[in-house]
Amino acid sequence: MSLALTVLFFGLFHSYVTLASDPDPVNDFCVLNRSSATTSLPCKNSSLVTVEDFVFSGIKFRGKFSETGLASIPSNVNVFPGLNTLGMSMVRADFDVGGVNVPHSHPRATEIAVVLEGKIYSGFVDTQNRIFAKVIEKGEVMVFPRGLVHFQMNVGDTWATILGSFDSQNPGLQKIPSAVFGSNIKEELLEKAFGLTPKEIAKLRKRFAPHRL
């Protein structure tokens, strides 16, 4: 390979890697300025920053269980301003007995999750539709590659808790059932894609309507 081609290859590779994660910070920190009306995530004046900007207590206690038996509390830049520009965030997820975290994906982040309590059937599906899943227990960790559909279910006899970490300050969340049946995709397409009747689709749309999320 010539020197010119080598330089071009590494330049393109570097650009790909750079675009695959949140931008690197250019300051020590950039606490999100909540008082600003702009959408450019401006920094809070550094002279006004305190230690409280870097502490978040929202995941100390379990949240309220949803209909699927999941209580999920995110700790991202939207609720924790000190994370701004740092390229990371977390989530606490508690599961009632039999509780489920429905198939979903995080379009902007890889996730790594550790089981704090209980037994969780946990896994993901790759783009070849291969499933990688097993029951993980307290102290075990599993990683979910960026953008791939993944899921969890409490298979133990007591409540369970996991703590997830992301390589993005705002990883995003797209729940597959809600994305398909909670949106305005044409009914005819859903009928052909899933082999469902209009009555069945109406029932699913009612269940996953945006106001229920």
Rank of each mutant, 00 (worst) to 15 (best):
A4Y: 05
A4R: 10
T6H: 08
T6M: 06
V7L: 14
V7N: 12
F10K: 01
F10E: 05
G11N: 14
F13W: 07
F13R: 07
H14N: 11
H14W: 11
S15Q: 15
S15H: 13
Y16L: 15
V17C: 09
V17G: 00
T18E: 11
A20V: 00
S21H: 10
D24V: 11
V26M: 09
V26R: 11
L32V: 04
N33W: 05
N33M: 02
S36T: 03
T38R: 09
S40Q: 13
L41R: 15
P42W: 06
K44R: 12
S46L: 08
V49K: 07
V51M: 14
F54A: 11
F56G: 06
F56W: 15
S57V: 08
S57P: 02
I59W: 03
K60W: 12
G63A: 08
K64W: 06
F65E: 00
S66L: 02
S66R: 08
E67K: 14
G69R: 05
S72W: 02
I73D: 02
S75H: 01
F80C: 11
F80T: 08
P81D: 02
L83C: 08
L86S: 13
G87D: 01
G87M: 11
M88C: 13
M88V: 15
M90K: 00
M90V: 07
R92K: 10
R92E: 02
F95N: 01
F95L: 09
D96H: 09
G98E: 07
G98P: 12
V100M: 13
V100D: 01
V102N: 06
V102T: 14
H104D: 03
S105N: 13
S105I: 09
H106C: 03
H106K: 05
P107I: 07
R108A: 04
A109W: 03
A109Y: 03
T110K: 08
E111T: 06
V114N: 10
V115F: 12
Y121D: 04
S122I: 01
S122E: 03
F124I: 02
V125N: 07
Q128N: 15
R130F: 13
F132I: 08
A133Y: 08
A133N: 09
V135I: 14
V135T: 15
V135E: 12
I136E: 02
I136Q: 02
K138P: 06
G139Y: 00
M142C: 00
F144L: 03
P145H: 05
P145R: 11
R146S: 08
R146Q: 13
R146H: 10
V149P: 10
M153D: 01
M153Y: 03
T158K: 15
W159Y: 14
L163N: 04
L163C: 09
G164N: 00
S165E: 06
S165H: 10
F166L: 01
D167G: 10
S168G: 02
L173S: 07
Q174F: 04
K175R: 12
I176S: 10
P177D: 05
V180W: 05
F181W: 04
G182E: 05
G182W: 03
S183I: 06
S183V: 03
I185T: 11
K186F: 04
E188S: 14
E191N: 01
K192R: 15
K192E: 13
K192W: 01
A193G: 04
F194L: 04
L196P: 07
E200S: 14
E200V: 06
K203C: 10
R205N: 07
K206S: 13
F208I: 01
P210D: 00
H211N: 11
R212N: 15
R212W: 03
L213R: 10
